Amino acid sequence: MAAQRGRGAAARRRRERLKAAAAGAAVLLVLLVGSSAPVWPYVVATVVLSTVAAVGWWLWRTDRLVRKGDRLWRRGEAIRAGRRTLAEVDVMTGTEFEDLVARLCRRDGCTEVRRVGGSHDNGADVLGRLPDGRSMVIQCKRYAPSRTIASRELRDLLGARVHFRADVAVFVATTRFSRPSERFAVEHGILAVHRDLFGVWNNGTSLVSLGAVNGQGQGNPSHRTRWKRTYGT
């Protein structure tokens, strides 16, 4: 009982001290307002400006964080979609390029897509079906931009189309086609995806829509001259 009474007395003393401190603070505030009336507007202005600055800094920081998060999200989405810059594609291995082509096909709604490239690929690197159900065979060449696709490589793809009984043959390259090989592709119904068309496909255009510009897009003689100056002969 004595201990309880002691604790109760101590609690009462603490409450009394708190009340005294609160009363002292109230009196001090009244004295400050009364004796420093000319200073009070400056105090209020300082508080307001500090609040505005704090809110402005918080909004700026929040905006930066949101923008950073958006950039990271967009980059992640681009990577998940299989997109790469052409400079990144140029340093890929042949297998990595075939995997990229397969991912782009899946992105466009193609089904049963699988990579079959290897030493005994029978002229095919990727097989699958277009969204409309037609079967396709794809040959991939991750060549340096200075090289040119020759007609004989397209003939190998024709053999692969027969071997796999595919409806559509696609030749995807990171360089350009020679004029004879470009004509050969158009004459035999091969979709020739040269470097420029691959860049368009890589950036979101569907594979099927590239058929409308097959045999085009490699430019006039001036364009070829700039190409050679950039990448070499």
Rank of each mutant, 00 (worst) to 15 (best):
M1P: 05
A2I: 09
G6S: 07
A10R: 11
R15V: 14
R15W: 11
K19A: 09
A25Y: 09
A26W: 10
V27L: 07
L28Y: 14
L28E: 12
G34P: 07
P38A: 08
P38Q: 09
V39N: 07
W40D: 12
Y42I: 02
V44Q: 11
V48N: 03
V55N: 14
W58H: 01
L59E: 14
W60M: 10
R64M: 13
L65G: 06
G69H: 02
L72M: 08
L72T: 15
R75W: 13
E77I: 15
I79K: 03
T85R: 15
L86C: 13
A87Y: 05
M92A: 09
G94Y: 03
D99S: 10
R103Q: 15
L104E: 05
C105D: 11
C110I: 07
C110R: 00
C110N: 06
H120Y: 03
D121K: 15
N122R: 12
N122I: 01
L127A: 02
R129Q: 09
L130F: 06
P131F: 13
P131R: 14
P131C: 11
P145S: 04
A150E: 14
R152L: 02
D156Q: 06
G159R: 06
R161E: 02
V162R: 08
A166F: 04
D167S: 00
V172W: 03
S181E: 00
A192P: 04
A192W: 00
D196A: 15
L197T: 13
F198P: 10
W201A: 05
N202L: 14
L210T: 03
G211K: 09
A212Q: 08
R224T: 08
W227D: 11
W227Q: 05
T230S: 13
Y231L: 01
G232R: 07
G232V: 02
